Structure formats: C-alpha cells, structure tokens
Amino acid sequence: MDFLDEILSKSKKIEETTNFDSNNFKKFYLNKNKPVVLKGYGHDWAAKEKWTLDFLADLEVESPVSLEIGANNQKETNFVRENLKTYIESIIKNEYRDKKDIAYLTLFNIFDRFPHLKDDVDLSILTKFTKRNNIYAWIGPEGTITGLHYDSLNNLLAQVMGRKLVVLVAPKDNKNMYISDKFELGATSSEVDINNYDESKHPKFKEVKFFSVVLRPGDVLFIPKKWWHYVKSLDTSISISNFGAFLPDILFTQTFESFLYSLHCRGYYKKGNCTCHRVVDGKVLSKFN
C-alpha cells in the first residue's frame, strides 16, 4: 500500500529559520547534526529567476546524461542515457504524465558541465566550513521519487524551481529502517518502499518518528549526514544538492567508499546488487559513464 499519506498525517514539522548567519548555522545545526529549513535562503539567487526548463534546454551538451527510471533505491536498478536537451524538451511537452516510472536526472554535475552557472547560487553557509564540496542538480517532472536512504556527508538541498516534499527520519531510528544490502556510492538505502509498503515484511517501520516539509523555490533544507530522507517532486522541479566533506570525511569516509567502489566495479563487492550498474544484452552498463 501507499504509506505516504499516513506518514504525513503523523509527521512533525522540521524547524525553520530565517537567520542565515553562518556561525549561527554552524553552532545550532551543523555541529548538532540537526536538520533545518533555511526559509528563503535562495530567494535572491540568480538561479531562481534564470534556471527555467527552456534555459537549461538551450545549454550546449555534447555528451548524454544518465536518467534514473523509477526509484532505484528500492526497485530494480534501471537507467537510460539521453541528451539533456531531448530530456528537458520531453518534460516541457508533458510526455511523462501517464507513465508509471518516470525518468529523473539525478546527481548531474551541473557546475562541471557549466562552470559559468556557479555564480547563480550561494551555498557558502555550509561551504565556508567544509574542505570539499560535490554539487549536483536534480531535474525532473512532477512525481519523481528518490526512495528512503541516508548520505554519508552533510547535504544542503536547495529548491530552485517547483515544490518538493521531503520526509526525514533521525539516525536513532536505524533499528526500524530495514537497511538494504544494495550498494550505493556515498549512501545507504532502506528496503522500505514508502509508496508500496508491505507491513508483513517491515512491521517496525510503523514505529518510526517522521519529520516532513514541502520545499518551495528559494528554500534550502540542511540534511545532516546519516539522516534518512525520502523526496518526491510535487511539480516539475529543479534542485541542487551540495554534499560537503570535512577533513575526516575525506580521509576516512570517502577514502573507504572509493575503495569499496573500486572493488565493486571489479566485481569483488556486491556484484550485480547496486544502483550504479545494470546489464543490457549481456553488457554491464554504468550510470556514471
């Protein structure tokens, strides 16, 4: 059954603030591993006005991008390669309205492809404290879903266009989250599919304490590392995520993850059980190539 409505009916509101002082953010949220909505933090960003679908479609991209089909965290891994302009034009034409599994551009290295767009956003409330930052764009039509998972790094999720629903679960509820064995670089997924919940398989999930928020353009959500989250686009949506790493994250967490990923790509670790590879006509394809 779809468990989302029940989750929302009993979820608590995530704290909001309009105090964008970086030291305040560090003291009360970053240091305490506490989520917060920076309400309107990106309201004056150039991206909020400039980044329309038409604007992105007109950017020159010679190589294709990877599109996830459905929520790969809990379902069978499925992705395709397509030109960015072609994909965005398909959203504009509303070609995904009646499709069950929607194509979703995730973890798109937008500033690697288009460095001139960096000036359109300001993520310094976090980046002034971090040593390394990986910034990605998420672009998709209404109904795209990222299933329950947590990231190994702190994340600023900024809403540029459209609305997104985010459900959070604290790390203290790990015992009720049914951690998946599926390999995902930089993240850990839950077996629980919120939109196809099976209580007989995951009964303890109903004991979880949920938090939720609907992000609107200009809102930024701080998701501390290892906080579970589920994300659903309520409209055609453009978002960016900044995954910020401190020195210990770089030396230990990311070094270990890179080692596991290297083993995985060579078939020595969780071969065939991941969100990054699929087999087509006997050939192994990678989402990242």
Rank of each mutant, 00 (worst) to 15 (best):
D2C: 01
F3T: 05
L4G: 06
L4V: 09
D5I: 14
I7R: 02
I7N: 04
S9Y: 09
E16A: 05
T17V: 07
T18A: 04
N23D: 15
K26T: 04
K26F: 09
F28N: 15
Y29G: 03
L30K: 07
K32E: 13
K32L: 14
P35E: 02
V36D: 01
V37W: 01
V37G: 01
V37R: 01
G40I: 04
G40T: 03
H43W: 07
D44I: 05
D44M: 06
W45F: 11
A47N: 06
E49C: 06
E49P: 03
L59D: 04
L59A: 06
E60A: 11
E62I: 11
E62R: 09
P64T: 12
S66H: 13
I69C: 09
N73I: 08
K75H: 12
K75I: 09
T77G: 06
N78G: 07
E82F: 07
T86S: 12
I88L: 05
I88V: 04
S90D: 12
N94T: 05
R97Q: 15
D98N: 15
K99Y: 07
K99C: 07
K100F: 08
D101G: 05
I102Q: 05
I102V: 15
I102N: 04
L105Q: 04
T106R: 14
L107G: 10
D112K: 13
D112S: 13
R113S: 13
R113K: 14
F114Q: 00
P115A: 03
K118H: 10
V121S: 00
K131M: 10
R132V: 14
N133A: 14
N133S: 15
A137S: 07
I139R: 08
G140T: 03
E142Y: 09
I145G: 00
T146R: 03
L148N: 02
L153D: 01
N155Q: 03
L157W: 00
Q159L: 06
G162F: 00
P171G: 08
K172Q: 13
K172M: 10
Y178Q: 06
I179L: 14
I179C: 08
S180P: 03
K182R: 04
K182C: 01
F183V: 11
F183M: 08
A187L: 11
S190L: 02
S190N: 01
N196D: 15
K201W: 05
H202M: 03
H202Y: 13
E207P: 06
K209L: 10
R216C: 09
P217Q: 03
P224C: 03
W227V: 11
V231N: 08
K232P: 11
S233D: 12
S233K: 09
S233A: 15
T236I: 10
S237H: 05
S239W: 00
S241F: 00
F243H: 13
I250D: 01
I250F: 04
F252G: 09
Q254D: 13
F256K: 13
E257G: 05
F259Q: 06
L260W: 05
S262Y: 14
R266D: 09
K271C: 09
K271D: 10
G272C: 02
G272P: 03
T275R: 12
T275S: 15
V279R: 08
V279T: 15
V284E: 14
L285V: 08
L285S: 08
K287H: 08
F288L: 12
N289I: 10
N289P: 06
